[in-house]
């Protein structure tokens, strides 16, 4: 599990462990948000059954306080586990990248636009930083907590639980079966984007030669008509 995370998100040992803790923290804070729901459930039950609510004020007061404290603690925990851990990890990642670069053979540097290389590394690190703090723990955390909550629902009233939960497998099936269609369009879009990327790079690099031959506008027309409209004309199935 740790190794999987390490490979998938370019993490250090510590980073992978922190990521697991972050996921657990997200699960905890999601579950903490379910306590008020239980309290509301009990309260409504008591009201409908005509219990003496005044007598139960201390019970609900304590219940509310416990819920609030739980939310508070788990939110702080989640915040620390996701944001702090990520920024410490991203510092480590940048430094280890720098170490790695120092050890690469000279020929590597001869072949590349160094400024370009640098900014790619920096912006990729930033993207990973953002994913690590805002997306990955939340994604896995909410899958796990949703499963736990679903299982929990069956203990109350299994028929009702089925009525509430049936949408989950159905939507999963839809997502999985539409994957092929989505992939098809995504691949097409990615291909068009790569074409466009190469075209724009070539245009920038050769603009001196194109201009001194009065060919820049002809080149641009070709670029705008073909890959650009293709890359922009498709609905982005992946951006939603």
């Amino acid at each position: 599990m740790i190794n999987l995370l390490k490979r998938k998100f370019a993490l250090s040992d510590k980073g992978a462990k922190d990521m697991i803790i972050a996921i657990i923290a997200v699960v905890a804070s999601n579950l903490a948000l379910m306590f008020p729901v239980s309290l509301l459930y009990m309260f409504t039950g008591d009201y409908i059954n005509g219990e003496n609510l005044s007598a139960k004020i201390p019970f609900y007061a304590v219940g509310i306080i416990i819920c609030l404290v739980l939310i508070l603690i788990t939110t702080i925990w989640q915040y620390n586990a996701t944001f702090f851990a990520t920024y410490i990890e991203s510092g480590t990642r940048r430094i280890s990248l720098a170490e790695k670069l120092r050890k690469l053979p000279l020929s590597f540097f001869a072949k590349r636009d160094l400024a370009d290389l640098t900014s790619t590394i920096m912006s990729d690190s930033e993207a990973l930083e953002h994913a690590g703090s805002h997306q990955i723990p939340q994604y896995y955390g909410s899958i796990i907590s949703t499963l736990i909550i679903c299982v929990g629902l069956f203990f109350f009233h299994w028929k009702m639980a089925i009525a509430a939960v049936w949408v989950v497998p159905i939507s999963l099936i839809i997502v999985l079966t539409s994957k092929r269609v989505q992939n098809h369009f995504t691949r097409k879009q990615v291909a068009a984007k790569i074409d466009l990327n190469e075209g724009v790079q070539e245009f920038i690099e050769t603009s001196r030669d194109l201009k001194s031959n009065n060919a820049e506008n002809e080149y641009l027309d070709g670029l705008v008509n073909y890959p650009l409209s293709k890359a922009n004309g498709l609905p982005a199935s992946s951006s939603s």
């Binding site: 636009d113 400024a115 370009d116 900014s119 790619t120 990327n197 724009v200 790079q201 245009f203 920038i204 690099e205 603009s207 001196r208 201009k211 001194s212 820049e216 506008n217 641009l220 670029l223 705008v224």
Partner: peptide, 24 residues
Amino acid sequence: LKHIAMLPVGFADEMGSGKVRRVV
């Protein structure tokens, strides 16, 4: 892209072709 086609030659070297491409 149209604007870049009109700019003085050498502008992309100055800014870095990778950077220009990423902006575009």
